[in-house]
């Protein structure tokens, strides 16, 4: 269609100027209209097709985001959301230097340590597992499915089971340590022990998921690279280090970003692990993450304005992480 129009359009140029146009004007107009429609169709349709996502996102993502931003500049009680009092940036300054600052910085620190404690081992174990699964194995699909089972378990179920395992009186963890003559540990009460226990829940739940992503990426690594490396006398370990890992770099970056986002938002595990005092991340706030802190401020202390300020601070933090990631990604691409 498009070509025919161009062909016809180029025709008059070659004709003598006084000759009347060969196509009746009405027909031409229709043609032009149809071609315009066609152009709109090719240009516009993709937008129409993706628009449901953006509409839903605007309603359930963007609007709450902006509304939360607006709330964060007000003093709002959970009971009377429509009676908001403008306080400017007070909620933010309170967080950084005011009465709740002690708890905010503590939560930020905990989010960071819990993030490291859970993300680093999780990704390392995942890459190792993926490497093992990449060999020709009997029943490999069974192992692959089994890896995904923890991921399919609900946070609540997993956390409650782990809370039993780490129970101070009759938990399996203390029984196991007892076999080696170690005294019972009050897992939940201690600062590091509680964080270790929570990281273990996170690691348990997410390792399989990451392993599958790594496995998929590993299978895309061309086999001749390994053959070439083997010809050059590289051992399995060397092959892993010098062929697999470099080929996985974009994937590693992706899993790091996703896990970091997950770690920043960590909520369910510490919240449920703490039982009675889970809403504040333990009696001494020893494993209170930013997510838990936000919940406690908003829904226990009914200070929605402050909770919104926490939400926006977390958002800023995530943007920062995203930016750092983008910079690293760019460098990686350049170095390739």
């Amino acid at each position: 269609m498009a070509t025919s129009i161009t062909a016809r359009g180029s025709d008059p140029g070659s004709a003598t100027p006084d000759r009347p146009h060969p196509v009746p004007p009405k027909d031409e107009r229709r043609q032009a209209w149809r071609s315009r429609l066609y152009r709109w169709d090719t240009k516009g349709s993709p937008y129409a097709f993706v628009s449901p996502f953006f509409l839903v996102f605007a309603a359930f993502g963007l609007f709450p985001l902006i509304y939360t931003g607006w709330l964060s500049l007000h003093q709002v009680s959970l009971y009377n959301v429509d009676q908001a009092k403008w306080v400017g940036l007070k909620n933010y300054t309170d967080l950084f230097t005011g009465p709740p600052s002690h708890f905010f910085w503590n939560a930020l620190g905990n989010t960071f340590t819990l993030g490291i404690l859970s993300t680093v081992p999780q990704l390392m174990i995942a890459i190792g597992l993926a490497h093992l699964l990449n060999y020709k194995l009997r029943g490999s699909s069974f192992f692959r499915t089994a890896l995904l089972a923890p991921y399919a378990t609900s946070v609540a179920a997993a956390t409650l089971v782990f809370a039993l395992i780490f129970s101070p009186e009759s938990g399996m963890a203390n029984w196991f340590l007892g076999l080696f003559g170690v005294d019972p540990v009050a897992w939940e009460a201690g600062e590091w022990t509680s964080q270790l226990a929570i990281s273990l829940i996170v690691t348990w739940r997410w390792t399989g998921y990451n392993a599958l992503i790594f496995l998929a990426a590993m299978q895309a690594v061309p086999g001749d690279l390994y053959e070439a490396a083997a010809l050059d006398g590289a051992s399995r370990w060397k092959q892993f280090l010098h062929v697999t890992v470099p080929a996985l770099r974009p994937t590693i970056l992706f899993t790091v970003v996703v896990s970091t986002i997950g770690a920043t938002q960590l909520f369910g595990e510490p919240f449920l692990f703490g039982g009675q005092s889970g809403h504040q991340g333990g009696t001494a706030h020893q494993y209170e993450t930013l997510g838990v802190f936000m919940y406690d401020q908003g829904f226990r202390n009914s200070m929605l304005g402050r909770a919104s300020a926490v939400a926006w601070t977390m958002f800023a933090l995530l943007l920062l992480i995203g930016l750092v990631n983008a910079l690293i990604a760019r460098r990686l691409r350049k170095s390739q």
Binding site: F57, F60, G61, L62, P64, L65, I261, M314, L318, G322
Partner: peptide
């Protein structure tokens, strides 16, 4: 994609 992921993740977080 990255920004949208971050946005939607945060939005989820911020939405009661």
């Amino acid at each position: 994609v990255l920004v949208t992921t971050v946005l939607s993740a945060t939005a989820l977080l911020a939405t009661g």
